[in-house]
């Protein structure tokens, strides 16, 4: 898009010869711990305020339209809604600290258990998709960039750009729907829904991954082109390296850093796609549960989902930055890293 290649230059000052003052990882861990705490506080306060901001009476929502005033009053007391807001907040935080996320209005099930049941499925889908995205997009983008370097094979370049632009434009649920229509309904090769078998995972993972594969492959292609023009790659060519050694050893780590810096959010964004796609395939993850809860205005479930998904997003972000740090230690010292 508009962002330039993020291949950074090292600072002018060198560190004194042998004396490595302190591990950059320590500072990184400290900074990120603070950041994570910030995200957590934001999430807790946010979810609490969310319920306060919602129109209508939570007690009413719980009991339904036919509740008597007495029932309502009693429920309000049970839920602590008659307490001052600050007390409600401390109760909420206290509950969270005990691992108590409340109970679903619809089913009466503890939210913690609902999330515990759904999370493994969502995480499974998201992680599989993430791995697939990385495994497909990096070699694809690199191969195209290497094949088209210096303006060669313009037709391949055009084909790649058009094909990825097209696939990118297909929303996950449309893709999922079309995949179901083709492979499950028409050809009956794969099961259309459920999460019982490995074969049931193929379609959902594909539906979630194909868009991000294209987006990321485009980023990888652009970043590779940028890396290929770097001076250090000329140095490597001057050492007459070729093939795997040249591209995998000298280009890959650099382009991964810049790719992840720009594209890390896409990996985290997979989570959103996962949640939506679950409803296409009746995948029993948290996504399905959370949008059912939104329709039913089942506040405790929504709160719990928002918290957990937010935390998961923050952790995935952290994971991306740790990978970045492993690839290029200079990114550890960077002020903002990838994201908070």
């Amino acid at each position: 898009m508009a962002e330039a290649a993020v291949v950074t230059e090292p600072g002018p000052k060198a560190r004194a010869a042998a004396g490595r003052s302190r591990s950059p990882w320590l500072a990184f861990a400290l900074r990120r711990a603070v950041g994570l705490a910030g995200v957590l506080i934001t999430l807790v306060v946010g979810t609490f305020l969310m319920v306060k901001l919602m129109p209508g009476d939570p007690a009413q929502a719980r009991l339904g339209a036919n509740a008597t005033p007495e029932q309502l009053a009693q429920t309000r007391q049970e839920m602590g809604l008659d307490q001052p807001v600050l007390t409600q907040f401390t109760d909420y935080v206290g509950g969270l600290l005990r691992g108590d996320l409340g109970e679903s209005f619809q089913t009466g099930q503890p939210v913690g258990k609902m999330i515990g049941d759904g999370m493994p499925f969502t995480a499974q889908l998201a992680l599989m998709a993430m791995v697939l995205v990385l495994v497909l997009s990096v070699p694809l983008g690199m191969a195209v960039a290497v094949a088209c370097r210096g303006g060669r094979r313009r037709s391949l370049d055009t084909a790649f750009t058009s094909a990825t632009a097209f696939a990118q434009a297909i929303p996950e649920y449309v893709l999922g729907t079309l995949l179901v229509a083709l492979f499950a309904v028409k050809l009956a090769w794969l099961p259309p829904s459920g999460a019982a078998t490995l074969s049931a995972m193929v379609l959902p993972v594909l539906a979630v991954s194909i868009g991000p594969v294209c987006t990321l492959a485009r980023i990888v292609r652009r970043e590779t082109s940028a890396v290929l023009t770097m001076d250090y790659l000329r140095t490597a060519r001057g050492r007459r390296l070729r093939g795997l050694r040249l591209y995998a050893r000298h280009a890959l780590p650099n382009l991964l850093t810049s790719t992840l810096t720009v594209g890390g959010l896409i990996l985290v964004g997979l989570l959103g796609g996962t949640v939506i796609v679950e409803s296409v395939f009746a995948w029993p993850g948290v996504g399905l549960a959370s949008f059912k809860a939104i329709i039913a205005r089942d506040y405790p479930v929504i709160q719990g989902m928002v918290l957990v998904i937010g935390l998961l997003a923050a952790l995935l972000n952290l994971l991306v930055d740790v990978v970045l740090g492993l690839l290029d230690p200079r990114t550890l010292n960077a002020k903002a890293g990838n994201t908070a």
């Binding site: 910030g38 985290v268 939506i276 939104i294």
Partner: peptide, 16 residues
């Protein structure tokens, strides 16, 4: 922080 929260999920919250 905001950008790292998946946009669709953020929208779901607002919709809720």
């Amino acid at each position: 922080v905001m950008i790292s929260y998946p946009a669709v999920l953020l929208a779901m919250i607002v919709a809720a």
